[in-house]
Nucleic acid binder design. Structure first.
Lengths: 253, 253
DNA sequence: TAGTGGTCTAGACCACATG
DNA sequence: ATGTGGTCTAGACCACTAT
Protein backbone atom coordinates (compact mmCIF):
# COMPACT_ATOMS: atom_id res chain seq x y z
CA UNK A 1 0.00 0.00 0.00
CA UNK A 2 1.55 3.20 1.05
CA UNK A 3 4.84 1.47 0.95
CA UNK A 4 6.79 3.92 -1.06
CA UNK A 5 9.40 2.21 -3.14
CA UNK A 6 11.71 3.01 -0.27
CA UNK A 7 15.32 2.47 -1.03
CA UNK A 8 15.14 -0.77 -2.89
CA UNK A 9 18.89 -0.37 -3.02
CA UNK A 10 19.87 1.09 0.33
CA UNK A 11 22.87 3.35 0.28
CA UNK A 12 25.63 2.10 2.55
CA UNK A 13 25.83 3.98 5.82
CA UNK A 14 29.42 5.03 5.35
CA UNK A 15 28.62 6.49 1.94
CA UNK A 16 25.70 8.49 3.22
CA UNK A 17 27.85 9.59 6.12
CA UNK A 18 30.54 10.70 3.71
CA UNK A 19 28.01 12.89 1.91
CA UNK A 20 26.69 14.39 5.11
CA UNK A 21 30.17 15.13 6.39
CA UNK A 22 31.24 16.52 3.04
CA UNK A 23 28.39 18.99 3.09
CA UNK A 24 29.15 19.89 6.67
CA UNK A 25 32.75 20.58 5.70
CA UNK A 26 31.59 22.95 2.99
CA UNK A 27 29.20 24.86 5.14
CA UNK A 28 30.35 24.72 8.73
CA UNK A 29 34.10 24.35 8.80
CA UNK A 30 37.12 26.31 7.70
CA UNK A 31 40.46 25.05 6.46
CA UNK A 32 42.64 23.85 9.28
CA UNK A 33 39.80 23.51 11.74
CA UNK A 34 39.89 20.35 13.81
CA UNK A 35 36.94 17.99 13.84
CA UNK A 36 35.58 16.24 16.91
CA UNK A 37 37.39 13.01 17.59
CA UNK A 38 36.28 9.78 15.96
CA UNK A 39 34.60 8.31 19.03
CA UNK A 40 32.50 11.40 19.54
CA UNK A 41 31.62 11.68 15.86
CA UNK A 42 30.61 8.04 15.71
CA UNK A 43 28.39 8.46 18.75
CA UNK A 44 26.86 11.61 17.35
CA UNK A 45 25.89 9.84 14.13
CA UNK A 46 24.87 6.66 15.88
CA UNK A 47 27.29 4.37 14.08
CA UNK A 48 30.23 2.23 15.07
CA UNK A 49 33.61 3.84 14.98
CA UNK A 50 34.73 1.58 12.14
CA UNK A 51 31.88 2.81 10.00
CA UNK A 52 32.65 6.41 10.77
CA UNK A 53 36.26 5.74 9.90
CA UNK A 54 35.25 4.35 6.53
CA UNK A 55 33.61 7.66 5.73
CA UNK A 56 36.62 9.63 6.93
CA UNK A 57 38.91 7.51 4.81
CA UNK A 58 36.90 8.41 1.73
CA UNK A 59 37.13 12.09 2.53
CA UNK A 60 40.84 11.84 3.19
CA UNK A 61 41.29 10.08 -0.15
CA UNK A 62 39.50 12.97 -1.79
CA UNK A 63 41.81 15.45 -0.15
CA UNK A 64 39.14 16.94 2.05
CA UNK A 65 40.52 15.83 5.40
CA UNK A 66 43.88 15.29 6.97
CA UNK A 67 44.30 12.86 9.85
CA UNK A 68 47.31 12.68 12.10
CA UNK A 69 47.79 10.08 14.77
CA UNK A 70 47.97 11.53 18.22
CA UNK A 71 46.73 14.88 16.98
CA UNK A 72 43.35 14.72 15.35
CA UNK A 73 41.45 15.24 12.13
CA UNK A 74 41.60 18.58 10.41
CA UNK A 75 40.01 20.13 7.35
CA UNK A 76 42.54 19.99 4.52
CA UNK A 77 43.37 22.95 2.32
CA UNK A 78 42.64 22.60 -1.41
CA UNK A 79 45.10 20.38 -3.22
CA UNK A 80 48.22 22.10 -4.43
CA UNK A 81 48.74 22.08 -8.16
CA UNK A 82 52.11 20.50 -8.85
CA UNK A 83 53.46 21.18 -12.29
CA UNK A 84 54.63 18.05 -14.02
CA UNK A 85 54.36 19.09 -17.64
CA UNK A 86 56.64 22.11 -17.63
CA UNK A 87 59.71 19.92 -17.58
CA UNK A 88 58.66 18.63 -20.93
CA UNK A 89 61.58 18.09 -23.23
CA UNK A 90 64.00 18.90 -20.46
CA UNK A 91 66.34 16.71 -18.54
CA UNK A 92 65.54 16.30 -14.91
CA UNK A 93 67.27 18.94 -12.92
CA UNK A 94 67.54 21.36 -15.78
CA UNK A 95 67.16 25.02 -14.99
CA UNK A 96 66.90 24.45 -11.29
CA UNK A 97 63.44 23.03 -10.90
CA UNK A 98 61.64 22.13 -7.73
CA UNK A 99 63.56 18.91 -7.19
CA UNK A 100 66.29 18.59 -4.65
CA UNK A 101 68.93 15.86 -4.93
CA UNK A 102 69.20 13.68 -1.84
CA UNK A 103 71.75 11.02 -2.57
CA UNK A 104 72.95 8.54 -5.13
CA UNK A 105 73.75 4.85 -5.10
CA UNK A 106 74.99 2.37 -7.65
CA UNK A 107 73.03 -0.86 -7.65
CA UNK A 108 71.00 -3.21 -9.78
CA UNK A 109 67.51 -1.83 -10.33
CA UNK A 110 64.29 -3.85 -10.06
CA UNK A 111 63.90 -6.20 -13.03
CA UNK A 112 61.06 -4.21 -14.56
CA UNK A 113 63.19 -1.09 -14.53
CA UNK A 114 66.15 -2.91 -16.05
CA UNK A 115 63.92 -4.13 -18.86
CA UNK A 116 62.68 -0.62 -19.57
CA UNK A 117 66.23 0.70 -19.61
CA UNK A 118 67.42 -2.13 -21.79
CA UNK A 119 70.14 -3.09 -19.34
CA UNK A 120 70.89 -6.53 -17.99
CA UNK A 121 68.90 -7.42 -14.94
CA UNK A 122 71.97 -7.65 -12.77
CA UNK A 123 73.69 -4.61 -14.25
CA UNK A 124 74.23 -1.84 -11.75
CA UNK A 125 72.99 1.65 -12.60
CA UNK A 126 73.09 5.01 -10.90
CA UNK A 127 70.10 5.50 -8.66
CA UNK A 128 69.59 9.14 -7.82
CA UNK A 129 67.12 9.98 -5.11
CA UNK A 130 65.45 13.36 -5.17
CA UNK A 131 62.66 14.95 -3.22
CA UNK A 132 60.27 17.66 -4.15
CA UNK A 133 58.92 20.26 -1.79
CA UNK A 134 56.02 22.60 -2.36
CA UNK A 135 54.66 25.18 0.02
CA UNK A 136 56.97 23.84 2.70
CA UNK A 137 55.56 20.33 2.50
CA UNK A 138 57.20 17.32 0.88
CA UNK A 139 55.03 16.32 -2.05
CA UNK A 140 57.07 13.77 -3.96
CA UNK A 141 59.95 11.33 -3.77
CA UNK A 142 61.75 10.24 -6.90
CA UNK A 143 64.08 7.48 -7.95
CA UNK A 144 65.97 8.31 -11.11
CA UNK A 145 67.64 5.34 -12.76
CA UNK A 146 70.56 6.21 -15.02
CA UNK A 147 72.53 3.48 -16.81
CA UNK A 148 76.25 3.92 -16.58
CA UNK A 149 76.42 4.05 -20.34
CA UNK A 150 74.39 7.26 -20.29
CA UNK A 151 77.01 9.05 -18.24
CA UNK A 152 80.28 7.48 -19.42
CA UNK A 153 82.45 10.31 -18.16
CA UNK A 154 81.45 9.54 -14.62
CA UNK A 155 83.73 6.58 -14.22
CA UNK A 156 85.70 8.22 -11.49
CA UNK A 157 84.64 6.22 -8.50
CA UNK A 158 86.32 8.73 -6.29
CA UNK A 159 83.26 10.90 -6.76
CA UNK A 160 81.94 11.09 -3.25
CA UNK A 161 78.71 9.24 -2.87
CA UNK A 162 75.72 11.11 -1.56
CA UNK A 163 74.38 14.44 -2.67
CA UNK A 164 77.55 15.39 -4.51
CA UNK A 165 77.41 12.38 -6.77
CA UNK A 166 73.71 12.90 -7.34
CA UNK A 167 74.46 16.34 -8.67
CA UNK A 168 77.29 15.00 -10.78
CA UNK A 169 75.02 12.45 -12.45
CA UNK A 170 72.42 15.08 -13.21
CA UNK A 171 75.06 17.38 -14.62
CA UNK A 172 76.38 14.72 -16.95
CA UNK A 173 72.87 13.85 -18.04
CA UNK A 174 72.26 17.39 -19.18
CA UNK A 175 75.10 17.13 -21.66
CA UNK A 176 73.19 14.53 -23.65
CA UNK A 177 70.82 15.45 -26.39
CA UNK A 178 67.28 14.74 -25.29
CA UNK A 179 65.21 13.38 -28.13
CA UNK A 180 61.93 12.85 -26.39
CA UNK A 181 60.18 11.54 -23.38
CA UNK A 182 57.33 9.40 -22.33
CA UNK A 183 55.12 9.69 -19.33
CA UNK A 184 52.55 7.65 -17.45
CA UNK A 185 50.53 8.25 -14.31
CA UNK A 186 48.98 5.56 -12.16
CA UNK A 187 47.75 4.97 -8.66
CA UNK A 188 49.96 3.18 -6.19
CA UNK A 189 50.55 2.82 -2.51
CA UNK A 190 53.56 4.22 -0.74
CA UNK A 191 56.28 1.78 0.21
CA UNK A 192 57.72 2.09 3.68
CA UNK A 193 60.63 4.34 2.71
CA UNK A 194 58.60 6.61 0.45
CA UNK A 195 55.96 6.87 3.11
CA UNK A 196 58.50 8.06 5.63
CA UNK A 197 59.85 10.65 3.26
CA UNK A 198 56.37 11.90 2.42
CA UNK A 199 55.36 12.00 6.06
CA UNK A 200 52.63 9.42 5.57
CA UNK A 201 51.91 5.88 6.71
CA UNK A 202 52.89 2.86 4.62
CA UNK A 203 50.26 2.13 2.03
CA UNK A 204 49.15 5.72 1.69
CA UNK A 205 47.75 6.41 -1.78
CA UNK A 206 50.24 7.97 -4.17
CA UNK A 207 50.33 8.98 -7.79
CA UNK A 208 53.24 7.31 -9.51
CA UNK A 209 54.64 9.22 -12.47
CA UNK A 210 56.89 7.18 -14.71
CA UNK A 211 59.03 9.13 -17.15
CA UNK A 212 61.36 7.71 -19.75
CA UNK A 213 64.00 9.93 -21.31
CA UNK A 214 65.14 9.06 -24.81
CA UNK A 215 68.32 9.89 -26.58
CA UNK A 216 69.71 8.43 -29.76
CA UNK A 217 66.89 5.93 -29.90
CA UNK A 218 67.51 4.40 -26.53
CA UNK A 219 66.27 5.01 -23.03
CA UNK A 220 68.85 7.18 -21.34
CA UNK A 221 67.15 7.41 -17.98
CA UNK A 222 63.99 6.46 -16.18
CA UNK A 223 62.30 8.36 -13.40
CA UNK A 224 59.83 6.95 -10.91
CA UNK A 225 58.26 9.82 -9.03
CA UNK A 226 55.86 9.20 -6.17
CA UNK A 227 53.46 12.05 -5.36
CA UNK A 228 51.17 12.29 -2.35
CA UNK A 229 47.75 11.63 -3.80
CA UNK A 230 45.89 13.26 -0.94
CA UNK A 231 47.49 16.68 -1.22
CA UNK A 232 48.57 16.91 -4.86
CA UNK A 233 46.93 17.66 -8.16
CA UNK A 234 49.31 17.01 -11.03
CA UNK A 235 49.13 19.72 -13.65
CA UNK A 236 50.30 19.43 -17.22
CA UNK A 237 50.14 22.20 -19.75
CA UNK A 238 51.84 25.23 -18.29
CA UNK A 239 48.77 27.08 -17.18
CA UNK A 240 48.60 27.51 -13.50
CA UNK A 241 45.97 26.84 -10.95
CA UNK A 242 42.37 26.17 -11.66
CA UNK A 243 40.07 25.38 -8.86
CA UNK A 244 37.83 22.71 -10.23
CA UNK A 245 36.15 20.19 -8.07
CA UNK A 246 33.59 20.13 -5.55
CA UNK A 247 32.18 23.21 -4.94
CA UNK A 248 31.13 25.60 -2.25
CA UNK A 249 34.00 27.02 -0.34
CA UNK A 250 32.22 28.92 2.32
CA UNK A 251 33.97 30.37 5.24
CA UNK A 252 32.54 30.44 8.69
CA UNK A 253 33.90 30.86 12.12
CA UNK B 1 76.43 5.76 15.88
CA UNK B 2 72.94 6.79 15.24
CA UNK B 3 71.94 3.81 13.17
CA UNK B 4 68.36 4.76 13.28
CA UNK B 5 66.94 1.46 12.16
CA UNK B 6 65.41 -0.29 15.10
CA UNK B 7 63.02 -3.14 14.72
CA UNK B 8 61.29 -2.36 17.96
CA UNK B 9 58.45 -0.99 15.85
CA UNK B 10 56.47 -3.95 14.55
CA UNK B 11 55.13 -3.80 11.04
CA UNK B 12 51.33 -3.81 10.95
CA UNK B 13 49.95 -7.24 10.23
CA UNK B 14 48.00 -6.16 7.20
CA UNK B 15 51.08 -4.61 5.66
CA UNK B 16 53.17 -7.68 6.18
CA UNK B 17 50.30 -9.73 4.81
CA UNK B 18 50.14 -7.52 1.76
CA UNK B 19 53.81 -8.21 1.08
CA UNK B 20 53.44 -11.95 1.53
CA UNK B 21 50.42 -12.09 -0.73
CA UNK B 22 52.10 -9.87 -3.30
CA UNK B 23 55.03 -12.24 -3.53
CA UNK B 24 52.71 -15.20 -3.74
CA UNK B 25 50.90 -13.54 -6.61
CA UNK B 26 54.16 -13.12 -8.45
CA UNK B 27 55.33 -16.66 -8.00
CA UNK B 28 52.35 -18.94 -7.56
CA UNK B 29 49.43 -17.45 -9.43
CA UNK B 30 48.57 -16.62 -12.99
CA UNK B 31 46.42 -13.80 -14.31
CA UNK B 32 42.75 -14.56 -13.95
CA UNK B 33 43.24 -17.26 -11.37
CA UNK B 34 40.84 -17.13 -8.45
CA UNK B 35 42.14 -16.92 -4.91
CA UNK B 36 40.70 -18.83 -1.97
CA UNK B 37 37.84 -16.97 -0.35
CA UNK B 38 38.46 -14.39 2.33
CA UNK B 39 37.36 -16.55 5.23
CA UNK B 40 39.70 -19.35 4.26
CA UNK B 41 42.58 -17.00 3.59
CA UNK B 42 42.11 -15.29 6.93
CA UNK B 43 42.09 -18.62 8.71
CA UNK B 44 45.15 -19.79 6.82
CA UNK B 45 47.12 -16.72 7.90
CA UNK B 46 45.70 -16.71 11.40
CA UNK B 47 44.17 -13.25 11.24
CA UNK B 48 40.68 -11.82 11.43
CA UNK B 49 38.85 -11.41 8.18
CA UNK B 50 38.90 -7.62 8.51
CA UNK B 51 42.68 -7.65 8.68
CA UNK B 52 42.94 -9.90 5.66
CA UNK B 53 40.58 -7.58 3.83
CA UNK B 54 42.80 -4.61 4.62
CA UNK B 55 45.64 -6.35 2.82
CA UNK B 56 43.44 -7.26 -0.13
CA UNK B 57 42.26 -3.68 -0.40
CA UNK B 58 45.84 -2.51 -0.75
CA UNK B 59 46.52 -5.02 -3.49
CA UNK B 60 43.34 -4.07 -5.29
CA UNK B 61 44.34 -0.40 -5.09
CA UNK B 62 47.63 -1.34 -6.69
CA UNK B 63 45.87 -3.09 -9.51
CA UNK B 64 47.05 -6.54 -8.52
CA UNK B 65 43.69 -8.01 -7.59
CA UNK B 66 40.13 -7.72 -8.73
CA UNK B 67 37.29 -8.49 -6.35
CA UNK B 68 33.71 -9.06 -7.38
CA UNK B 69 30.86 -9.55 -5.00
CA UNK B 70 29.24 -12.93 -5.29
CA UNK B 71 32.07 -14.20 -7.43
CA UNK B 72 35.43 -14.05 -5.75
CA UNK B 73 38.87 -12.52 -5.89
CA UNK B 74 40.97 -12.95 -9.01
CA UNK B 75 44.46 -12.00 -10.06
CA UNK B 76 44.21 -8.86 -12.17
CA UNK B 77 45.93 -8.46 -15.51
CA UNK B 78 48.51 -5.67 -15.80
CA UNK B 79 46.97 -2.25 -16.01
CA UNK B 80 46.02 -1.12 -19.47
CA UNK B 81 47.82 1.92 -20.76
CA UNK B 82 45.20 4.49 -21.71
CA UNK B 83 46.46 7.23 -23.93
CA UNK B 84 45.51 10.65 -22.69
CA UNK B 85 48.16 12.78 -24.30
CA UNK B 86 47.55 11.96 -27.94
CA UNK B 87 44.49 14.16 -28.02
CA UNK B 88 46.76 17.03 -27.35
CA UNK B 89 45.85 20.08 -29.31
CA UNK B 90 42.75 18.39 -30.59
CA UNK B 91 39.15 18.94 -29.78
CA UNK B 92 37.44 16.10 -28.01
CA UNK B 93 35.95 13.75 -30.51
CA UNK B 94 38.27 14.73 -33.31
CA UNK B 95 39.32 11.99 -35.68
CA UNK B 96 37.15 9.40 -34.03
CA UNK B 97 38.98 8.65 -30.85
CA UNK B 98 38.16 6.08 -28.24
CA UNK B 99 35.32 8.09 -26.75
CA UNK B 100 31.72 7.28 -27.41
CA UNK B 101 28.99 9.89 -26.96
CA UNK B 102 26.22 8.80 -24.62
CA UNK B 103 23.86 11.72 -24.30
CA UNK B 104 23.60 15.43 -23.82
CA UNK B 105 21.70 17.68 -21.46
CA UNK B 106 21.40 21.40 -20.98
CA UNK B 107 21.68 22.48 -17.39
CA UNK B 108 23.58 24.68 -14.98
CA UNK B 109 26.95 23.12 -14.13
CA UNK B 110 28.42 22.90 -10.62
CA UNK B 111 29.60 26.30 -9.40
CA UNK B 112 33.29 25.40 -9.67
CA UNK B 113 32.82 24.42 -13.29
CA UNK B 114 30.92 27.59 -14.06
CA UNK B 115 33.75 29.63 -12.60
CA UNK B 116 36.30 27.83 -14.72
CA UNK B 117 34.21 28.37 -17.82
CA UNK B 118 33.62 31.99 -16.98
CA UNK B 119 29.86 31.60 -17.17
CA UNK B 120 27.32 32.71 -14.64
CA UNK B 121 26.65 30.18 -11.96
CA UNK B 122 23.06 29.75 -13.00
CA UNK B 123 23.74 29.82 -16.71
CA UNK B 124 22.87 26.58 -18.46
CA UNK B 125 25.50 24.89 -20.62
CA UNK B 126 25.61 21.81 -22.77
CA UNK B 127 26.67 18.78 -20.77
CA UNK B 128 27.82 15.99 -23.01
CA UNK B 129 28.35 12.59 -21.47
CA UNK B 130 30.78 10.22 -23.08
CA UNK B 131 32.24 6.89 -22.12
CA UNK B 132 35.48 5.28 -23.06
CA UNK B 133 36.01 1.59 -23.62
CA UNK B 134 39.28 -0.23 -23.87
CA UNK B 135 39.78 -3.92 -24.40
CA UNK B 136 36.07 -4.45 -24.00
CA UNK B 137 35.96 -2.91 -20.55
CA UNK B 138 34.65 0.55 -19.64
CA UNK B 139 37.60 2.57 -18.39
CA UNK B 140 36.33 6.11 -18.16
CA UNK B 141 33.26 8.30 -17.94
CA UNK B 142 33.39 11.91 -19.00
CA UNK B 143 31.34 15.03 -18.52
CA UNK B 144 32.10 17.66 -21.14
CA UNK B 145 30.80 21.13 -20.31
CA UNK B 146 30.31 23.40 -23.30
CA UNK B 147 28.96 26.94 -22.87
CA UNK B 148 26.27 27.81 -25.34
CA UNK B 149 28.40 30.68 -26.57
CA UNK B 150 30.97 28.18 -27.81
CA UNK B 151 28.49 26.56 -30.15
CA UNK B 152 26.25 29.46 -31.18
CA UNK B 153 24.93 27.74 -34.28
CA UNK B 154 23.32 25.09 -32.17
CA UNK B 155 20.38 27.21 -31.14
CA UNK B 156 17.87 24.96 -32.84
CA UNK B 157 16.14 23.40 -29.90
CA UNK B 158 14.56 20.93 -32.24
CA UNK B 159 17.84 19.04 -32.14
CA UNK B 160 16.82 15.79 -30.53
CA UNK B 161 18.30 15.33 -27.14
CA UNK B 162 20.37 12.29 -26.43
CA UNK B 163 23.17 10.86 -28.49
CA UNK B 164 22.30 12.86 -31.56
CA UNK B 165 22.65 16.18 -29.80
CA UNK B 166 25.87 15.02 -28.16
CA UNK B 167 27.33 14.43 -31.60
CA UNK B 168 26.03 17.76 -32.82
CA UNK B 169 27.75 19.64 -30.00
CA UNK B 170 31.03 17.86 -30.67
CA UNK B 171 30.73 18.61 -34.36
CA UNK B 172 30.18 22.30 -33.73
CA UNK B 173 33.09 22.37 -31.33
CA UNK B 174 35.46 21.11 -33.96
CA UNK B 175 34.74 24.13 -36.10
CA UNK B 176 36.39 26.39 -33.55
CA UNK B 177 40.07 27.15 -33.59
CA UNK B 178 41.74 25.46 -30.67
CA UNK B 179 44.43 27.64 -29.17
CA UNK B 180 45.61 25.45 -26.36
CA UNK B 181 44.67 23.27 -23.49
CA UNK B 182 45.36 22.63 -19.91
CA UNK B 183 45.33 19.39 -18.01
CA UNK B 184 45.37 18.16 -14.44
CA UNK B 185 45.22 14.72 -12.87
CA UNK B 186 44.14 13.97 -9.35
CA UNK B 187 42.77 11.18 -7.22
CA UNK B 188 39.08 11.02 -6.50
CA UNK B 189 36.37 8.60 -5.58
CA UNK B 190 33.64 7.55 -7.94
CA UNK B 191 30.25 9.12 -7.46
CA UNK B 192 27.28 6.80 -7.60
CA UNK B 193 26.54 7.37 -11.28
CA UNK B 194 30.13 7.15 -12.42
CA UNK B 195 30.58 4.03 -10.35
CA UNK B 196 27.67 2.37 -12.08
CA UNK B 197 28.99 3.26 -15.49
CA UNK B 198 32.46 2.00 -14.62
CA UNK B 199 31.09 -1.19 -13.11
CA UNK B 200 32.45 -0.38 -9.69
CA UNK B 201 31.07 0.38 -6.25
CA UNK B 202 30.51 3.95 -5.08
CA UNK B 203 33.68 5.38 -3.67
CA UNK B 204 35.97 3.32 -5.85
CA UNK B 205 39.26 5.12 -6.49
CA UNK B 206 39.38 6.99 -9.78
CA UNK B 207 41.79 9.26 -11.57
CA UNK B 208 40.09 12.50 -12.46
CA UNK B 209 41.48 14.23 -15.52
CA UNK B 210 40.43 17.85 -15.90
CA UNK B 211 40.99 19.40 -19.31
CA UNK B 212 40.31 22.97 -20.31
CA UNK B 213 40.09 23.88 -23.98
CA UNK B 214 41.01 27.43 -24.93
CA UNK B 215 40.03 29.44 -27.92
CA UNK B 216 40.33 33.14 -28.50
CA UNK B 217 41.61 33.62 -24.99
CA UNK B 218 38.64 32.12 -23.26
CA UNK B 219 37.71 28.67 -22.04
CA UNK B 220 35.61 27.09 -24.75
CA UNK B 221 34.96 23.81 -23.02
CA UNK B 222 35.88 21.85 -19.94
CA UNK B 223 36.15 18.11 -19.64
CA UNK B 224 35.99 16.10 -16.42
CA UNK B 225 37.05 12.55 -17.19
CA UNK B 226 36.90 9.85 -14.55
CA UNK B 227 39.18 6.84 -15.09
CA UNK B 228 39.17 3.60 -13.14
CA UNK B 229 42.29 3.86 -11.03
CA UNK B 230 42.56 0.15 -10.41
CA UNK B 231 42.76 -0.92 -14.04
CA UNK B 232 44.17 2.12 -15.83
CA UNK B 233 47.56 3.66 -16.33
CA UNK B 234 47.28 7.05 -17.98
CA UNK B 235 49.91 7.53 -20.65
CA UNK B 236 51.02 10.83 -22.09
CA UNK B 237 53.58 11.19 -24.83
CA UNK B 238 52.52 8.93 -27.64
CA UNK B 239 54.83 6.06 -26.95
CA UNK B 240 53.01 2.91 -26.09
CA UNK B 241 53.22 0.44 -23.32
CA UNK B 242 55.98 0.13 -20.82
CA UNK B 243 55.73 -2.34 -18.06
CA UNK B 244 57.23 -0.65 -15.11
CA UNK B 245 56.28 -1.27 -11.56
CA UNK B 246 56.03 -3.49 -8.66
CA UNK B 247 59.20 -5.34 -8.50
CA UNK B 248 60.64 -6.39 -5.20
CA UNK B 249 61.28 -3.64 -2.71
CA UNK B 250 64.46 -1.78 -3.23
CA UNK B 251 67.44 -1.71 -0.99
CA UNK B 252 68.43 1.47 0.73
CA UNK B 253 71.81 3.00 0.25
C1' DT C 1 49.42 11.14 31.58
C1' DA C 2 45.56 11.93 28.72
C1' DG C 3 43.70 11.99 24.30
C1' DT C 4 44.14 11.09 19.47
C1' DG C 5 44.05 8.16 15.38
C1' DG C 6 45.75 3.23 13.86
C1' DT C 7 45.28 -1.72 14.26
C1' DC C 8 42.92 -5.92 15.29
C1' DT C 9 39.33 -9.13 16.70
C1' DA C 10 35.16 -12.24 16.37
C1' DG C 11 31.34 -12.19 15.42
C1' DA C 12 26.64 -10.88 12.47
C1' DC C 13 23.91 -9.86 8.58
C1' DC C 14 23.28 -8.18 3.68
C1' DA C 15 23.66 -8.00 -1.54
C1' DC C 16 24.90 -10.40 -5.32
C1' DA C 17 26.10 -14.21 -8.60
C1' DT C 18 25.74 -18.90 -9.75
C1' DG C 19 24.22 -23.60 -10.19
C1' DA D 1 20.34 -22.92 -1.89
C1' DT D 2 24.96 -21.98 -1.54
C1' DG D 3 29.01 -19.31 -1.49
C1' DT D 4 31.14 -15.01 -2.40
C1' DG D 5 32.57 -10.30 -1.19
C1' DG D 6 30.46 -5.91 1.20
C1' DT D 7 28.82 -3.71 5.37
C1' DC D 8 28.46 -3.12 10.26
C1' DT D 9 29.07 -3.74 15.20
C1' DA D 10 31.19 -3.32 19.94
C1' DG D 11 34.56 -3.94 21.90
C1' DA D 12 40.17 -4.10 22.88
C1' DC D 13 44.79 -2.63 22.66
C1' DC D 14 48.73 -0.04 20.48
C1' DA D 15 51.51 4.07 18.75
C1' DC D 16 51.90 8.60 18.72
C1' DT D 17 51.59 13.66 20.27
C1' DA D 18 50.90 16.94 23.30
C1' DT D 19 50.77 18.80 28.00
Amino acid sequence: MGTTQLESVPEPKYWHLRTVLSEALDSEFTVGEILPNERDLAARFGVARATLRQALEQLELEGRLQRRRGVGTTVAPPRVGVDVGAEQQAWPGASEDAWQPVDCAVAAPPPAVADALGTDRDEAVHIVRRSRVSHGQPVAAELLYVPRSSVPDLTAIDTPSGTARARAVLRELERLELEGQDRAVELGSARADDARELDRLPGAPVLVVTTRFFTRGRTAALSLATYRADTCRLTFGASGNVEIHHGPERQAS
